[in-house]
Design a protein around this nucleic acid. Structure first.
Length: 606
RNA sequence: GGACCGUUAGCUCAGCUGGAUAGAGCGCUGCCCUCCGAAGGCAGAGGCCAGAGGUUCGAAUCCUCUACGGUCCGCCA
């Protein structure tokens, strides 16, 4: 495949508007109970038990760490004790009495320093299962983002070769984060910044030229400063097909610009294919080159200049590690220290050309001007030193109106059967995204890349990620889903109608065993987990949640081994269907979670 | 010299944005496989949350300092 049209500069690849979501209020039992608590507090204020006008924003309703404490706990009494000038205990007692009068609350008990532990009517929990089945894949979808426009920039690898494992982690993280934000109600744009304006594309062009000569039968030598990778062989050959011998023996000036264009397009095709293999689809590919000669860099810097943030000056040499060849030079500087940076940063080199920072400023200026309410950049950890200046730039350009969050992804350490697997470009043991995906598949790759926090190093063992045991979270979650599918298949074999419509209509009051209720509680946590993870920009929490949920499900399943009454499949349809409804609800949430991570749920594991 | 990230069970890591007796997997110890999928299961031991101060009803979580580890630090992106 040859190079295609120039990378679309901006809006050309925007996806069609997202489909309208269900108008029903999102179901979140914790939020519902919190409303109940707040209402009760208001009633106490009205009755004069509490002083009026208390700030209840810090009142929370959460699952207690220890299930023995009840279903939910609120800190209301402790938070309000001081402003109300009352003892926590007195507030808690009054609140408990109020809440206990509600049919939905089975009991309300004061405990510890002033916690109010609530026991909910089982019907509320059972209602969660019905709610999951009714809402389906949209269960847990939140309106938190209020449709705010948010831009997630990730991968953004130089167009000089195929993506490697490091890029893979950034790609998976960014993509899952984007999906998570979408699920939480944001209007998300996935974006890739193509660094096609710098010196490294000249290097690329020269390397392709060598492969081109090679295709013409010449002997070539790859010196330092060229890319010797085999992946350029077909590019050189394709170039020969296209232009024949037009560039053979010609000086660089005659072919450099053409081949640069040709080669970056070829590399972007390669990268797009790599991303597709991983299941990543960008909305926008934004070209750095499109910023040059179009006045965009100048416009961005003019904006900063108008704010008095650009000046000519000489930077101090870095202390401690003084380069041998350091000498003071006057440069054009951005006063990033006014927006939280440690030193001011050069935007123009002493020879008058732009530093790499200048187009980055212009690029982020463009994002601001496109009307995004918030920006997220996903970088490799080696770009950590770049964070403050970029935030300073966005803060200055947007007048502080547009927050920029920069997420760094740490290194991936590769292993093969427990042994460290060293990568070396020279030795040809250079592991690409494609190598990983071809060997273990996109789903396993994606899930495993999210089993660590983004800023912690990650071990990736080619053998262990395929192991089928509890140690392997990917398998454990998929296994749970497969078990549910198995139950549904068996139900069908019995001739029972276990469609979602039928399951939704079941009377679930029989689901009251502690381990069944524990599983339902886990399901009920999903909506608040989505919001917390989206708010923190931490998609790994979804992966951990799914592992927990799967663990709870397998736990109930295992209990069924000893206690036949807990098995999902019983003698007759009437007693089976409520339990099958629970199993099905688990599968619905697992599918939704895996969907956010970009992983296909498995129907069977054989 | 400075910046950023990290430090939680023997090992690998979570910890819901400040809540109650800090959790999971592996490893270890002891039981258990005629059972909807044993590709195992249940139970137990194991902790000064790197250290020292501070903030408050309350800190693994927030602030300051220290130690150790990683990444980075003008004319490379």
């Amino acid at each position: 495949m040859g190079p295609s049209r120039p990378s679309a500069p901006v809006d050309a690849r925007i996806r069609p508007a997202k489909p309208r979501r269900s108008k029903e209020r999102p179901m979140n039992l914790f939020a519902d109970i919190r409303v109940l608590v707040i209402d009760a507090l208001a009633a106490l204020e009205a009755a004069g038990t509490l002083p009026a006008g208390l700030d209840t924003r810090n009142v929370t309703v959460e699952p207690p760490r220890d299930a023995a404490h009840g279903d939910m706990a609120t800190n209301a009494a402790m938070v309000l004790a001081k402003p109300a000038k009352m003892k926590p205990r007195d507030i808690a007692d009054a609140l408990a009495e109020k809440l206990a009068a509600d049919a939905r609350i089975t009991s309300a008990e004061v405990a510890g320093p002033g916690f109010l532990n609530l026991l909910l009517a089982p019907a509320l929990w059972q209602g969660v299962v019905t709610g999951v089945l009714k809402t389906g894949a949209d269960f847990g979808r939140s309106a938190m983002g209020q449709g705010q426009k948010i831009n997630v920039e990730y991968v953004s690898a130089n167009p000089t070769g195929p993506l490697h494992v490091g890029h893979t982690r950034g790609a998976v993280f960014g993509d899952a984060l984007a999906s998570l934000l979408d699920f939480a109600g944001y209007d998300v744009t996935r974006e890739y910044y193509i660094n096609d304006g710098g010196a490294q594309v000249d290097v690329l062009a020269r390397s392709v030229y060598l492969r081109y000569l090679e295709a013409h039968g010449q002997e070539v030598a790859f010196e330092d400063g060229t890319y010797p990778g085999d992946y350029l062989i077909p590019v050189g050959a394709a170039l020969k097909e296209k232009v024949g011998d037009a560039y053979v023996g010609k000086p660089e000036a005659e072919w450099l610009a053409d081949i640069r264009e040709y080669a970056t397009e070829a590399m972007m095709d390669l990268i797009r294919d790599d991303l597709a293999a991983l299941g990543v689809e960008m909305d926008v590919f934004y070209s750095e080159k499109s910023l040059y000669g179009t006045g965009k860099i100048e416009a961005a810097l003019e904006d900063l200049r108008g704010k008095g943030l650009i000046y000519e000056g000489v930077l101090e040499p870095p202390k401690g590690k003084k380069p041998e060849d350091w000498e003071p030079r006057e440069q054009t500087l951005f006063k990033s220290t006014e927006h939280g940076d440690d030193v001011d940063r050069p935007v123009m080199k002493s020879d008058g050309s732009w530093t790499y920072f200048a187009p980055d400023i212009a690029y982020h200026y463009d994002k601001v001007q496109r009307g995004f309410d918030a920006l997220i950049d996903v970088f490799g950890a080696d770009h950590g030193g770049y964070v403050k200046r970029m935030k300073a730039a966005v803060s200055a350009l947007s007048g502080g109106a547009v927050p920029l969050d920069i997420k760094l992804t740490q290194l991936v350490k590769l292993f093969k059967n427990g042994e460290p697997f060293k990568m070396s470009k020279r030795a040809g043991t250079f592991v690409t995204l494609r190598d990983v995906v071809d060997e273990v598949g996109p789903g396993v790759t994606r899930f495993h890349m999210l089993t660590r926090k983004n800023d912690a190093p990650l071990d990736f063992d080619f053998d262990k990620v395929l192991e089928q045991s509890r140690e392997n979270p990917v398998f454990y979650v998929q296994y749970a889903n497969a078990r549910v599918a198995s139950v549904l298949r068996k139900a069908a074999e019995q001739g029972w109608d276990a469609s979602d419509a039928v399951l939704t209509a079941q009377d679930l009051s029989g689901l009251e065993d502690p381990s069944e209720l524990a599983l339902i509680r886990k399901l009920a946590e999903w909506p608040r987990l989505v919001e917390a993870a989206a708010d923190a920009h931490e998609p790994h929490r979804v992966a951990f949640y799914l592992y927990d949920l799967a663990g709870e499900f397998h736990g109930l399943w295992n209990k069924g081994n000893d206690l036949p009454g807990l098995r999902f499949l019983q003698e007759d349809a009437a007693t089976s269907l409520p339990k099958i409804a629970l199993a099905r609800a688990v599968a619905v949430v697992i599918s939704a979670g895996l969907g956010i991570l970009g992983v296909e749920p498995a129907e069977e594991m054989r």
